[in-house]
């Protein structure tokens, strides 16, 4: 049902409320998996993952009212393996104003695709310290992995063509089939 036809068209696959409910569920799953949110820190990947990490932090605060979950962001552009192969995207600035040593880091991104961004993020995290564990939360897993990386928390699995473009925002998720 979610298979996108191979023509130039946009299709909404999740509504705004769907995205919001998915983030709520992921918040509960993070708390459940880690037996509370003690020692959990969120790191949104620039740029698509940062707003999701912000919302996740709010939702976790509602579930665990006595706890503030530290929330940072990481720009992975200096750690990518395709530098020089594509135009440089103007960089966002990483902000991790807390110690990640011995913490459980939940990386947050909008779309999981090849896994190369996550690989770069894992490498980038090394510069900040040694987390006790790293988990991965994404709104959309669209398949086509090129590395042995899997998400721990998924909003929705959506099969796609490699040429599709997936757009995630608070207003929902759309897939645009691009004719090649």
């Amino acid at each position: 049902m979610n298979q996108v036809p191979n023509r130039a068209s946009s299709k909404a696959v999740m509504s705004g409320p769907d995205v919001s409910r998915a983030i709520s569920r992921i918040a509960h799953e993070i708390v459940e998996r880690n037996h509370g949110a003690h020692n959990v820190v969120l790191i949104g990947l620039q740029r698509g993952g940062t707003w999701i990490a912000d919302v996740l932090a709010e939702r976790i605060a509602q579930i665990e009212p006595n706890l503030v979950v530290p929330n940072g962001s990481l720009d992975v552009s200096m750690h990518r393996d395709d530098i020089g192969l594509r135009p440089i995207v103007p960089g966002a600035i990483s902000e991790i104003p807390f110690d990640i040593n011995c913490a459980v880091v939940v990386l947050v991104d909008d779309v999981l695709y090849t896994g190369r961004t996550v690989r770069a993020a894992l490498e980038g995290l090394n510069n900040f310290g040694r987390p006790r564990a790293v988990q991965l939360a994404v709104i959309v897993d669209r398949g086509h992995r090129e590395l042995p990386i899997r998400p721990d928390f998924v909003g929705k699995n959506i099969p796609t063509q490699a040429s599709d473009e997936v757009d995630v925002s608070a207003d929902g998720v759309t897939i645009t089939a691009v004719e090649s």
Partner: peptide, 20 residues
């Protein structure tokens, strides 16, 4: 140094898909 040495001019074929 980054601007001069990491130019992405050579290959444009990867563009959007690697950013996701």
């Amino acid at each position: 140094l980054f601007d001069v040495l990491a130019r992405g001019a050579e290959v444009n074929s990867l563009k959007e898909e690697v950013v996701a």
